[in-house]
Design a protein around this nucleic acid. Structure first.
Length: 479
RNA sequence: CGAGGCGUAGCUCAGCUUGGUAGAGUGCUUGGUUUGGGACCAAGAUGCCGCAGGUUCAAAUCCUGUCGCCUCGACCA
């Protein structure tokens, strides 16, 4: 893409300091504010509106595949968390505890949910008795808390918002199908709604969710080549169900244990949107989730007829698009910069000259392209331009993903790339987690992202130890 | 948890070395002129100098403690 002139001086350039750029954008676009508790963020109206649009879209997809929403408690008694050993070991280091109620010390500590597997299990034990009760396809939208040591708004916060689906099935096949279906739902959502391309696949043994038999993941790449675990879908087998004593009477009148899945995405996706699409002028929002899809900026507001025309357009368009008219006294230049910072995909400029000619100017955020449009065909053109933005930013992100994906067949090559070229590295792997540890040590944090569903054959041997290769793995640093 | 940085106006920060009336820019309010890439003029309002002790005639400034936040590491289903 052609380099744009940077016009917003308040935002640190991506090239200069990507981390600083990120926090500048988050604050300047008025998505969040810091609170007085470390790692807990205030999600401001503009940021929350993005989340609401994400929720609405995903929720529709979940319901279309038969899922129902429920709400589980915030607190988990300690004994319940400890029922499954791997699970508690995985989460124990980062749970927050409630130890006191009013003036009384509690006889048992209560954990603030870091995830709700055990709560769902406890409930499922009560309500699943027969194969006729299956499948159970529950989802909840809620907050969770993980006591993180390093926090960043959206990417890793102590408290965050998410959805967690927890399902129970009669057979392994059915549960596996659910696991894959939900991963595909995430993939579709990332591509069609967020305009974000990603690599999908299976996590290695080492990177699996605590207690899961298989973890599938969607891994988008940020603009700077760093990966973000963008969503996961887990197959649990019957292990949790066994620990919790969940059984049902099968079609053949034998007692059986159901197969379980869970899957989730969080407000972290907003971090992905920022880091995949954003530029030096601020946020760039995918049109489908942008709280404002079109901002109308009247030029020379006080000249007769201008404001009236702008209002007329707003009225005409508001049923079809999310439209804002900025009729404030700020200068047009200020407004241009302001809404670019906030990532509004489309800007409509209308001034006295345009009104004379029955036209207006449409400007697309991601490339600042200006088009003169007749007012007679405005709605169709807006529709078209919004699609152009969606396709444009998807394409740009896809090119970035391709450009920043390398292949390594030897360890030297791998280390050289890890050192000098940020992004994903495709390389063969023997299947031994010792090699994952070694690579992580040698590269200052490069980990296996996933084993893709369609593996390429790059070479015969493991890039690390030289033993026969079992899989092709995507490697990379992550947030 | 380790290393560094920072707490002064809504925001960004100066002032601290060498103790002596609390500052600037920006934002905010009012009025006017402007308006196709962050406009200009004028007038105004805005402070527990993070918190608690101490030294001193006198502390934003020096000393001790404490709390919090940020960044980078380590950790991170």
């Amino acid at each position: 893409m052609a380099k744009q002139q940077k016009m917003v001086e308040d935002i640190t350039s991506m090239e200069v300091d990507f981390a600083k750029w990120y926090t500048d954008v988050v604050k300047k676009a008025e998505l969040v504010d810091y609170s007085s508790v470390k790692g807990c963020m205030i999600i401001r109206p503009y940021g929350y509106a993005i989340w609401e649009n994400i929720q609405a879209d995903l929720d529709k997809r979940f319901k279309a595949t038969g899922h129902e929403n429920v709400y589980m408690p915030l607190l988990i008694p300690e004994h319940l968390l400890q029922v499954e050993k791997d699970h508690v070991e995985g989460f124990a280091p980062e749970v927050a505890w409630v130890t006191q109620g009013g003036e009384e010390t509690l006889s048992e500590r209560l954990c603030i949910r870091p995830t709700s597997e055990v709560l769902f299990c406890e409930h499922y034990k009560k309500i699943i008795n027969s194969y006729r009760d299956l499948p159970k396809l529950y989802n909840q939208w809620c907050n969770v808390m993980r006591w993180e040591k390093t926090t960043r708004p959206f990417l890793r916060s102590s408290e965050f918002l998410w959805q967690e689906g927890h399902t129970m099935h009669e057979t392994k096949e059915e549960a596996m199908e659910e696991t894959m279906q939900q991963l595909r739902t995430y993939e579709d959502f990332y591509r069609d709604t967020l305009a974000i391309p990603a690599v999908t696949g299976r996590k290695t043994e080492k990177e699996k969710f605590a207690g899961a038999l298989e973890t599938y993941t969607i891994e988008p790449m940020m603009h700077n080549g760093v990966a973000l675990q963008g969503g996961t879908s887990h197959y649990f087998g019957t292990h949790f169900a066994e620990c919790f004593g969940i059984t049902f009477t099968g079609r053949d009148n034998t007692q059986q244990v159901p197969h379980q899945t869970s899957w989730g995405v969080s407000t972290r996706m907003i971090g992905a949107i920022i880091m995949v699409h954003g530029d030096d002028n601020g946020l760039v929002l995918p049109p489908k989730i942008a709280p404002i899809q079109l901002v109308i900026v009247p030029i020379a507001v006080h000249k007769p007829g201008v404001l009236e025309k702008a209002r007329e357009l707003q009225e005409q368009l508001k049923g079809q698009f999310r439209v804002k008219l900025d009729d404030s006294d700020n200068s047009p230049g200020w407004k241009f910069a302001q809404y670019e910072m906030k990532g509004v995909p489309l800007r409509l400029e209308i001034g006295p000259k345009d009104i004379e000619n029955n036209q207006c100017v449409l400007v697309t955020r991601h490339n600042r392209e200006k088009t003169f449009v007749s007012l007679d065909e405005l709605p169709q053109m807006i529709e078209k331009k919004l699609q152009e933005v969606h396709d444009g930013i998807y394409q740009r992100a896809l090119e970035n993903l391709k450009e920043k994906t390398s292949v390594a067949t030897t360890l030297d090559e791998f280390l050289d790339i890890a050192q000098n070229k940020p992004g994903f590295i495709k390389a063969m792997w023997c299947g031994d987690s010792a090699c994952e540890d070694k690579i992580k040590d040698l590269t200052n944090g490069v980990k296996s992202r996933c084993i893709p569903f369609e593996e390429e054959h790059l070479s015969d041997t493991c890039v690390c130890c030289g033993k026969p290769a079992k899989h092709m793995v995507y490697w990379g640093k992550q947030y």
